[in-house]
């Protein structure tokens, strides 16, 4: 019993340290420092690439800034430093400090290129969803089914975001990051998004999925992701291309469930929508 609690505590700590698999949204404050690991293979590898690039930069900075700081301290006039004016050029060092960065860059480019090719492989998907951006919200259509969802900022966030609303954002659950109808997807399946827009350019971004793709009128862009089977949950993101006054108010919420739960949800949703569609013409006929 005690051990279980300790284990849970350690697990929580490890998660908090990793920062990733707990959705970073919703935590508050100073620990929001780094990219999230996310819940897909791609997002985890992006995180690793980001950290690799970061540490390479830190190492280069340590060397370059180290030499600079050394000069700033020890080669100052006030310490009686005498300039060595013979030090004007050296082809040898120029070659060295051209060649060494090239090698470092090649070392960074290779894993980046590999990952890039992998990310852009959108074949063999098990489910396709059409994503259409509009001012200001998203429409999701499940290909091969009649299910279609319009997803807009949740009512509570909308109310709080109004001028002079007087509602504190902290009193609203997931202020600006919650929607009225979530996008529901299964975990463990490769999902392909077909992204477009009907008005201006938007961009569909969910950091935990490692997916950001522009929604552009006249184009159908593809992106895909596979959420790890052990990571059902709710993942939140926002539009990342300026799209007018509602740009900050069209979040994306992805609800990942088990495949079985997804099938059940889709079936139920589909039935509900056919029923609504069947009623709609009758209602329209009745009213005319």
């Amino acid at each position: 019993m005690k051990r279980a609690r300790l284990g849970r505590l350690l697990g929580t700590l490890a998660l908090a340290f990793a920062g990733g698999s707990m959705p970073a949204w919703g935590k508050s404050g100073w620990d929001e420092l780094n990219m999230m690991h996310g819940v897909t293979n791609v997002s985890t590898r992006i995180y690793a690439l980001h950290m690799m690039a970061f540490w390479v930069c830190v190492c280069i900075a340590a060397v370059v800034f180290g030499v600079m700081i050394w000069s700033l301290i020890f080669h100052r006039q006030s310490r009686g430093a005498v300039p060595d004016v013979s030090l004007t050029h050296s082809t040898k060092v120029e070659v060295v400090w051209t060649a060494v960065p090239v090698l470092i860059l090649v070392g960074m480019a290779v894993p980046a290129a590999r990952l890039l090719v992998k990310i852009n492989n959108n074949t063999d998907s098990q489910l396709s969803i059409r994503v259409t951006g509009f001012q200001w919200g998203w429409r999701y259509q499940y290909v091969g089914s009649n299910v279609s969802i319009i997803s807009k900022l949740s009512e509570s966030s909308t109310a709080a975001s109004m001028m002079h609303s007087g509602i504190s954002p902290t009193s609203v659950p997931h202020y600006l990051l919650s929607v009225d109808h979530q996008l529901v997807v299964p975990v463990g399946e490769k999902i392909r998004l077909l992204i477009t827009s009907i008005d201006v350019i938007h961009s569909w971004w969910v950091p935990d999925l490692g997916v950001k793709k522009d929604a552009i009128p006249g184009y159908i862009n593809q992106a895909s992701f596979t959420i790890a089977p052990n990571k059902p949950g709710t993942y939140r993101g926002q539009c990342t291309e300026l799209c007018g006054r509602g740009h900050a108010y069209m979040p994306i919420v992805v609800h990942a469930v088990t495949p079985a739960a997804f099938e059940a949800w889709l079936k139920q949703k589909s039935a509900a929508q056919s029923e609504a569609a069947a009623h709609a013409p009758a209602a329209a006929a009745a009213s005319s």
Binding site: A24, W25, G26, K27, S28, G29, W30, E32, L33, N34, M35, M36, S161, P169, T170, H174, Y175, L176, L177, W205, P207, G237, Q238, C239, T240, L242, H247, A248
Partner: peptide
Amino acid sequence: GLAGMPRRIPDYAPQFTDW
């Protein structure tokens, strides 16, 4: 930016307030 705040937004989620 790393924590997920888009640019060019007039308002943001509360967890971005401190920074």
